[in-house]
Computed example of a mutant assay.
Amino acid sequence: MAYDNICRYLAQAYPFAFVSWLLNVEDIEIQPLPTELSLEPIRSDALYLLPNRGQILHLEFQTIPSSSPPLPLRMLDYWVRLYRKYDCPIEQVVIFLKQTKSPIVYVEQLAVGRTIHPYRVVRLWEEDPTPLLENPALLPLAILARTDTPEVLLRQVADKIDSIEEREEQQNISVCTEILARLKFNKNLIRQFLQEDLMRESPLYQEILQEGELKVVFRLLNRKLGNIEPNLQSKIQQLSSEQLEALEEALLDFSVKQDLINWLENYQ
């Protein structure tokens, strides 16, 4: 799962945490909105309607600064589509995850001729970790915040995760933290502080594993048998992690697509 996808999961699962952090509000009504916008489909990372404020909060998470089309143009495109659909003020925030010296992360507006479109930029490596440490849902982002003592920050985050009472939430936050921590820390240091067994028990971790296994299986099948038809893809996507592992081993002996069809029929 991409780092941006982890952040999308957090933003969708914990909308209040992101709204309260970015807009500095406490008691507020939030209505998550569909993230796919009309016309030529594009999907934003997170959209919240704040009825009490008559406002929309739009979030975009970026690991790599460059994109196509460029980020400033994308932000204007998002804004136009959102405003046309909802006709209300829109606060746009781009959150850069991985520290970089690229000048792109310091661009905070589209400026072309008379068209000026500003948006807000958060560079996590410049952020004070304190407010992020106060909310369990933001702990995975806290791991990427400003620090001169990385081991101390890792310990603080690990302690906060240990104090989460609800088991599944604790597991999922641990998974998100461990994955985002790879953007900044080496694996050995991460393992010193974060519980690997807690992460592996997480349903979210199992989804991530399965997603990774699916990508491997499809890549191998496409290389071995050519493009796989949508109906076969659908059947493969319904397989469990154990079945995907079995398919990954069996496909080494496939020579034609009928071999794949026969294998899937036997498993069904």
Score class of each variant (00 low, 15 high):
1 M>D: 12
4 D>Y: 03
6 I>H: 11
7 C>D: 11
10 L>N: 00
11 A>W: 03
16 F>P: 10
18 F>Y: 05
20 S>I: 00
21 W>M: 01
21 W>D: 00
22 L>M: 06
23 L>S: 04
25 V>C: 03
26 E>M: 07
31 Q>S: 11
32 P>V: 08
32 P>H: 06
34 P>R: 04
34 P>S: 03
35 T>E: 09
36 E>F: 03
40 E>K: 15
41 P>R: 15
42 I>T: 10
50 L>T: 01
54 G>R: 07
56 I>Y: 01
56 I>A: 04
59 L>G: 02
59 L>P: 00
60 E>K: 08
65 P>M: 08
67 S>F: 05
69 P>Y: 08
73 L>A: 12
75 M>T: 02
77 D>G: 05
78 Y>A: 03
78 Y>V: 07
79 W>Q: 12
79 W>R: 11
83 Y>E: 12
84 R>W: 03
87 D>L: 12
87 D>R: 13
92 Q>S: 15
93 V>H: 02
95 I>P: 03
97 L>R: 07
98 K>C: 07
98 K>Y: 07
98 K>V: 06
100 T>S: 15
101 K>I: 11
102 S>T: 03
105 V>H: 06
106 Y>A: 10
106 Y>Q: 13
107 V>T: 14
108 E>C: 13
108 E>D: 15
109 Q>D: 09
113 G>K: 09
117 H>S: 14
120 R>G: 06
122 V>D: 08
124 L>E: 02
130 T>Y: 00
132 L>R: 00
137 A>H: 00
138 L>F: 00
141 L>W: 01
143 I>T: 01
148 D>K: 12
149 T>E: 12
151 E>C: 06
152 V>D: 15
154 L>T: 01
154 L>M: 10
155 R>K: 08
157 V>T: 01
157 V>W: 01
157 V>C: 01
158 A>G: 06
161 I>A: 02
162 D>G: 08
162 D>P: 02
163 S>N: 09
164 I>P: 03
165 E>Q: 12
166 E>P: 03
169 E>L: 11
170 Q>Y: 04
174 S>A: 15
176 C>L: 05
179 I>Y: 09
180 L>W: 02
183 L>N: 05
184 K>H: 05
186 N>F: 11
187 K>Y: 14
188 N>F: 12
189 L>I: 12
193 F>H: 08
193 F>W: 10
195 Q>L: 12
196 E>A: 13
197 D>G: 05
199 M>P: 05
201 E>A: 13
202 S>E: 07
204 L>S: 04
204 L>Y: 07
211 E>T: 15
213 E>Y: 05
215 K>C: 07
224 K>F: 07
225 L>N: 04
226 G>H: 06
227 N>G: 10
229 E>I: 12
231 N>Q: 13
231 N>L: 13
231 N>V: 14
232 L>S: 06
234 S>E: 14
234 S>A: 14
235 K>S: 13
237 Q>S: 09
240 S>P: 06
240 S>I: 07
243 Q>W: 06
248 E>S: 12
251 L>M: 14
252 L>P: 05
254 F>R: 01
256 V>F: 08
257 K>V: 15
263 W>P: 06
263 W>T: 04
265 E>R: 14
266 N>W: 11
267 Y>A: 14
267 Y>S: 13
